[in-house]
């Protein structure tokens, strides 16, 4: 039964991908890519990767669709018909695909428990997490402690993206004058009321996800994205300027940097106890307590940076002066 659901979702995904390939109106392409992410999130849940599914849904369906739509608002609607010959790309793609299929021939079968992947490094994580870190969610344990440095790299990557977008778009952000007031959708009464109602729970849910990461799916990254989603809705409905009063650009830039500093700061602390970098055992009374404190701190850093990057990116995109009037939406 399991594999049937698997196959169905995969075939559905393939269908969406081909649809994206064929469509020329960019608006539907973006929507389809949102669908693609959601369905892959569903598939990931089915493959027992709950954390990844959560992130994929939050990022794939949420943030990237928002960014793409705001790019469309600033650029063009339709894709010009391609003039270039399709032969070379087809050959390249076909050969790569063939090589990959050739590569799958010696792979362990899907879901085969005796595959080398499950024999060598993973068993220790599963068995040792209980007593070494004492945290039910093994993925968060591995993410924040065993391979904590990878996550520091991840935070730095998202920090780089934030800085890069600021570098590229900060120059052309127009000053929030009274003109921007019209974009606040006064006449959307229903939206304004519902948003006011929803923003509270969304922020609450974000904090829940942030600290629930140790026990169930969740963690710094997902929390950050949800936190940013709250501010994006607020900015969309109540206008960039009012959102700017709530969370000003300067504050976002400080939060951006602070998250990374918190994360690397936690790592540096262990130097003074003569332990290697990112060794949390020194932080608490016992080694296990230290791990808990360390992971919470680290996840907090991740959450802060991710939220700040998403908000600052949205501010940068929304701040550009759109060539088309707002009515054309």
């Amino acid at each position: 039964m399991e594999s049937v659901i698997n196959m169905a979702l995969l075939v559905f995904l393939a269908g969406t991908a081909f649809a994206i390939l064929r469509r020329t109106t960019l608006f539907s392409v973006v929507m389809l890519s949102g669908v693609f992410s959601l369905v892959s999130a569903a598939l990931l849940v089915h493959l027992d990767a709950v954390d990844v599914a959560f992130t994929e849904a939050a990022v794939g369906a949420g943030v990237s669709t928002v960014l793409m739509l705001s790019t469309l608002a600033l650029t063009a609607r339709h894709e010009a018909p391609g003039t270039r010959s399709r032969a070379i790309p087809l050959i390249v793609v076909f050969l790569t695909g063939l090589a990959l299929v050739y590569g799958t021939l010696d792979m362990p079968r899907f879901g085969d428990p005796s595959a080398p992947v499950h024999q060598h490094v993973a068993p220790r994580y599963i068995s040792a997490t209980a007593h070494e870190i004492g945290m039910p969610n093994i993925v968060t344990a591995v993410l924040a402690s065993y391979r904590g440095f990878d996550t520091l790299g991840e935070v730095t990557v998202i920090f780089t993206a934030g800085i890069a977008v600021l570098l590229l778009l900060a120059g052309t952000i127009r000053e929030p004058t009274t003109a921007t007031k019209i974009t606040a959708m006064e006449h959307h009464l229903v939206l304004r009321v519902v948003t006011k109602v929803l923003i509270g729970p969304i922020l609450l849910f974000a904090l829940y996800v942030q600290f629930h990461g140790d026990y169930g799916p969740g963690g710094g990254f997902q929390a950050g994205v949800i936190f940013a989603a709250a501010f994006i809705i607020y900015a969309l409905v109540f206008g960039l300027e009012t959102a700017g009063n709530a969370l000003p650009g300067r504050a976002v830039r400080i939060l951006l940097a602070l998250g990374v500093l918190i994360y690397s700061g936690t790592g540096v602390v262990s130097f003074f106890f003569n332990k290697n970098f990112l060794d949390y055992s020194v932080l608490g009374a016992t080694a296990q307590a230290g791990q808990h404190i360390g992971i919470i701190l680290v996840e907090f850093g991740v959450g802060m940076t991710v939220a700040a990057v998403m908000v600052s990116t949205f501010y940068a995109f929304a701040g550009q002066n759109p060539p088309i009037g707002d009515e054309e939406w």
């Binding site: 959307h188 229903v190 939206l191 519902v194 109602v197 929803l198 729970p201 009515e327 054309e328 939406w329």
Partner: peptide
């Protein structure tokens, strides 16, 4: 509860946008 709030609002928003457009 969340769905109870969001789905009608989103339908409303889409319809409104279409009409305005």
């Amino acid at each position: 509860a969340f769905l109870f709030f969001t789905s009608p609002t989103s339908t409303h928003a889409i319809a409104n946008a279409a009409l305005v457009a």
